[in-house]
């Protein structure tokens, strides 16, 4: 009986379903339309340098959005990722500037420090919201403040700088014009896609988003799966911190203010439902591209900052309304 309920709540792997193709095709078309528009109306949009710029500029948001996808798929939200990124960057910045280490050891230390900080914060978010079944909105809002305060405390509100040269090299390295940091993000997308589609763990996350009770009745520990989703989100915040540091060669305790909202926007524009259970990380990739292309193209067109902000807002709302109709027609 219970297994039957479970299989009903767990949709078939999205890769072959009509629904998924339609979903991503819609976002893909929107992205293509934007690219076409900016290519026609600006002279520099479709140049190799500008494409490299866009890839660099969306990397941090994409990394954060990959983790965010896991949390939103189980029907949660993580408002703390921007602050956690700053905290992880500051801890790693302290580690990388410790005296007495060679460049390689210092970089390794920084990567470990950033990742562990992110994982720890994510795990705390997950444990507290899952154990007491509390809304993750509030718990992660708490963590947003804790991590920001911790970042300021640890750094004494000072920008940390002068990292090893090799770290900077990594941040600006290219392979055929593609930034290496973007390839890191793309690798995360592929891993996430594989995990969400081809592992029991991934399918159960969709199941939890659709019908938590059914997954529980099937004998799975919902608690640990939830903790895992938030921990993954914290992990990607740690990775984002490393990208931030490598790209800018500083750690700033006020980095990443509002980044959580951009990451959520990428996930939602990408067609993942805020109530959980439906969506894909490929959509998130496209969503991050839409936000990045808009931010870049609207500056090239010469639109004022305020108009740019308004248009970004309109796009988010349009995406959600479109998603409503998409859900309505594809679920028939």
């Amino acid at each position: 009986m219970t297994t039957q309920t479970l299989s009903e709540t767990m949709p078939k792997p999205t890769r072959f379903s009509v629904r998924n193709v339609l979903q991503n095709a819609g976002i893909g078309l929107a992205l293509l339309a934007l690219i076409l528009f900016f290519s026609v109306f600006t002279e520099h949009f479709l140049t190799p340098n500008n494409i490299t710029n866009i890839l660099t500029q969306i990397t941090i948001n994409l990394v954060l959005a990959v983790g965010m996808t896991f949390v939103i798929l189980i029907g949660g939200i993580d408002l703390s990722v921007g602050s956690v990124m700053a905290f992880a960057a500051v801890v790693a910045g302290k580690a990388i500037t410790l005296p007495g280490f060679g460049p390689a050891e210092a970089i390794a230390l920084a990567i470990v420090a950033a990742t562990l900080t992110g994982v720890a914060c994510g795990m705390i978010n997950g444990v507290i919201s899952a154990y007491w079944a509390l809304p993750s909105f509030i718990i992660t809002l708490g963590m947003l403040n804790i991590a920001r305060g911790a970042a300021l405390q640890v750094s004494d509100a000072q920008t940390i700088y002068s990292f090893p040269y090799a770290f900077e090299e990594f941040g600006s390295a290219m392979i055929y014009g593609v930034p290496v940091v973007f390839l890191v993000a793309l690798f995360l997308v592929l891993v996430a896609w594989f995990v969400l589609n081809f592992t029991v763990f991934g399918r159960l996350l969709y199941g939890i988003g659709n019908n938590e009770e059914a997954v529980r009745l099937a004998g799975h520990s919902v608690y640990w799966y939830k903790v895992a989703a938030f921990t993954i989100c914290g992990f990607t915040a740690g990775i984002a911190a490393i990208v931030y540091m490598a790209r800018l060669n500083i750690s700033s305790p006020i980095a990443g203010i509002g980044f959580e909202l951009n990451a959520i926007a990428a996930v939602i524009i990408g067609g993942t439902s805020l109530s959980g259970g439906r969506g894909s990380v490929i959509g998130t990739l496209l969503g991050a591209f839409i936000i990045g292309v808009l931010a870049n193209g609207l500056i090239l067109i010469g639109l004022s900052d305020f108009m740019r902000q308004m248009i970004t807002g309109v796009v988010i709302i349009v995406a959600v309304v479109l998603d409503y109709y998409r859900a309505k027609y594809t679920s028939k």
Partner: peptide, 17 residues
């Protein structure tokens, strides 16, 4: 907005334009 990362992106795009 006084911020390093945003300045990095915004200025890259201005330089392209």
């Amino acid at each position: 907005h006084w911020e390093t990362e945003e300045a990095n992106s915004v200025f890259s795009n201005m330089l392209t334009a």
